[in-house]
């Protein structure tokens, strides 16, 4: 058994909140740089160059890449041989988020109730996904999720017979409807299978994967490439002003599901696809 202090987890979360918001993920930055080369139009190239310049300024000046520093989505993988001491895991994570959003001068964008809408002024509560894994490590990923893109995310319960084509068409439709408001070029997280809620969870988790990295499942990798091409054929382009780059990548996570079901969720993310991970 290994003892890990709740407060240490909180400290890790705090640092990751700031890092994720200030340092654009290298894989995302590389994908944007590659897209500049692929674009023909001056406007599209300039829009992508501004995104790269923005990332450089954010990192150098320690200001957030985007003012929507989002809801803090925290993926916590807790080894089952870990004993967390000194307080509740949930409170430690929330305290870590509050501290990170305070120290990092990030925006407090969370309201206590979706109906009465009073700002909590701490950017908590965080959205926490906890997984118990083998071993004795604690691994945390913080994903600030902005709502320009989140508001364009969709889920549908397809028919099993809709198959790959049905999935592809749904994702492309989602990208088309996301439009300029979700700040293209997008990174699209897709969850297939599971249940209604699990597909959505998979779609968001899929956004953690490095853009441009191959899917371990050959069939899914082929589907990802097909969907990416179709999304780029929409020609929505960077910032919705037209061009070859409507999405930087498509990432699919798939799970066993019911014989009568084919749930598909699309979690849209913008070009500021942000996450930072660390371990104790």
């Amino acid at each position: 058994m290994r003892r890990v202090k709740a407060r240490e987890i909180g400290r890790l979360v705090s640092g990751l909140c700031v890092e994720a918001n200030v340092r654009l993920r290298p894989d995302v930055k590389a994908a944007v740089a590659a897209a500049v080369r692929r674009e023909k139009g001056a406007g599209a190239k300039e829009a992508l160059r501004m995104i790269l310049k923005n990332a450089d300024i954010a990192r150098a000046e320690k200001i957030p890449i985007c003012q929507d520093t989002g809801v803090a989505v925290v993926f916590a993988e807790i080894g089952q041989d870990v004993i967390i001491t000194g307080g509740s895991l949930k409170r430690a994570i929330d305290n870590g988020v509050a501290e990170g959003y305070r120290k990092g001068r990030l925006r407090k964008s969370v309201v206590r109730s979706p109906l009465s809408r009073k700002n909590t002024n701490t950017n908590t509560p965080a959205v926490i996904h906890t997984e118990i894994t083998p071993g004795d490590r604690v691994r945390i990923c913080v994903m600030p999720k902005g709502f320009g893109s989140e508001n364009k995310s969709v889920i549908r319960m397809l028919n099993p017979s809709d198959g790959e084509k049905g999935v592809a068409d749904f994702v492309v439709e989602a990208a088309g409807n996301a439009g300029p408001e979700a700040c293209p070029p997008f990174v699209l997280g897709v969850g297939i299978g599971g249940t209604f809620d699990y597909a959505a969870y998979l779609a968001k988790k899929a956004l953690l994967r490095k853009v441009g990295s191959p899917n371990r499942d050959r069939r899914l990798y082929s589907l990802e490439k097909k969907i990416l091409k179709s999304v780029n054929d929409l020609k929505i382009g960077p910032m919705g002003l037209g061009g070859n780059t409507t999405a930087l990548g498509v990432s699919i996570l798939s799970r066993a599901t019911h014989i009568a079901g084919l749930p598909v969720a699309v979690n849209v993310n913008c070009h500021a696809t942000r996450s930072a991970c660390g371990a104790i």
Binding site: E61, Q67, T69, R105, L106, R107
Partner: peptide
């Protein structure tokens, strides 16, 4: 249409890009 992040010391404003106009 913007909701900025708090400014660091010595800066006029934090990050302040546009929000969805619709």
């Amino acid at each position: 249409y913007t909701g900025p992040t708090p400014a660091r010391k010595g800066r006029a404003v934090g990050a302040c890009g546009p929000t969805t106009s619709a």
